[in-house]
């Protein structure tokens, strides 16, 4: 047993764009591949909450789907619990999915409205052919509901999804994953559709469950503020690559990549005195298409610090900065010095 539960090595996922019949017989040049994931590597440790952060279109959801094995990678490798899980046959895949479960973003769409909560929770047991009498299954359902603090469980088992609030639904969604005793959960924006007043409640619950059962989480989000609060380590993604990775506090307090810096500066803080200020964002424009990834450093088109080298030379790899903190920017230290100078003025 190692202390790594999931290890992703140089994973790539390219999509072929749709071509019309006419285009395919005309053979109109080469197809432009959509490079959704363009070589990412990371490890998730046992009992760790690992955050994947970035804007829409950066590939974070595709990464989640690859980890869930809902998509086959184009190349690269994935190891789970020491085993190569890059390509699995049907039997092995089912076994894998039992160990790695997913919580979806939309608690209103992820549950069959014609299933009572009891049925929602029993379904995974049926799909995975978990043997047991009705009493045993009911006991498992009660236990799962108790784990997510939906008490008294008897009362909730007979309810329909529409009778629950968004927060309660997300608890049911979590209970549904727990019923199969998974080792890891993939949570793709689990609280983004939940009211702010109860968001923290769901995150608390997820963390309590994680600690109690020793689970690992892959937490996918665009929200840096909850990520800082909820995760142990963060990987920041941009256009299919990880540009910075490190402990959550290091990433927020000492960001080294200019993209991370821009993300942080864009986050609104509930403090007064900002109404008349036009915020200066250290980033240009919007994210380019993954079908058209810029040459050199893929961030150079939006980076206010980019030089000719960033445009013309090969893309920088992740390089370490002290303990556990890696960044992919060739000018990281110059930029840091420049920012400090600016802040001093």
């Amino acid at each position: 047993m190692t202390d790594t539960i999931l290890s992703v090595k140089n994973l790539k996922k390219y999509f072929e764009p749709h071509q019309s019949f006419a285009q395919s017989i005309a053979g109109s040049g080469q197809k432009k591949l959509i490079k959704a994931i363009d070589g990412i590597s990371f490890d998730i440790r046992r009992g760790e909450i690992f955050g994947l952060i970035g804007e829409s279109g950066c590939g974070k959801t595709t990464t989640g789907k690859l980890v869930m094995k809902l998509l086959e990678p184009t190349s690269g490798q994935m190891f789970f619990n020491g085993e190569d899980v890059t390509h699995l046959d049907k039997e092995k895949l089912k076994e894998y999915r039992r160990k790695v479960q997913m919580i979806f973003q939309d608690p209103y769409a992820s549950m069959n409205p014609r299933f009572k909560i009891k049925d929602v929770l029993e379904e995974p047991l049926i799909i995975h052919k978990v043997k047991g009498t009705i009493e045993e299954r009911t006991r498992m359902i009660v236990k799962a509901l108790e784990e997510v603090k939906l008490t008294p469980p008897d009362e909730f088992m007979g309810r329909w999804p529409h009778m629950l609030s968004g927060g309660q639904r997300q608890r049911v969604a979590t209970a549904r994953t727990l019923i199969l005793n998974p080792m890891m959960l993939v949570a793709d924006e689990p609280v983004s559709m939940i009211d702010l007043s109860t968001r923290a409640e769901i995150l608390h619950m997820m963390r309590d469950v994680q600690k109690e059962l020793g689970l690992s989480y892959l937490y996918i989000t665009h929200d840096l503020s909850t990520a800082r609060y909820f995760t142990d380590r963060i990987a920041v993604m941009y256009l299919g690559r990880i540009v910075e990775i490190g402990r959550a506090d290091d990433i927020i307090d000492n960001p080294l990549h200019p993209y991370t810096q821009a993300l942080i500066e864009a986050v609104p803080e509930p403090a007064t005195g900002k109404i008349d200020i036009i915020k200066e964002l250290p980033i240009y424009g919007e994210i380019p298409s993954p079908a058209n990834i810029p040459q050199g450093c893929r961030f150079h088109t939006r980076c206010p610090y980019a030089t000719d080298a960033c445009k013309n030379e090969p893309e920088p790899e992740l390089t370490p900065d002290g303990e556990e903190h890696y960044h992919a920017c060739r000018r990281a230290y110059e930029i840091q010095a420049e920012r400090k100078r600016k802040q001093a003025v």
Binding site: L196, R199, H204, P270
Partner: peptide, 16 residues
């Protein structure tokens, strides 16, 4: 209950 980026808290509050 509003998470703040630069103020790390142990327990984020919520409204039951």
């Amino acid at each position: 209950a509003t998470p703040r980026l630069f103020k790390k808290v142990e327990q984020l509050q919520f409204i039951p």
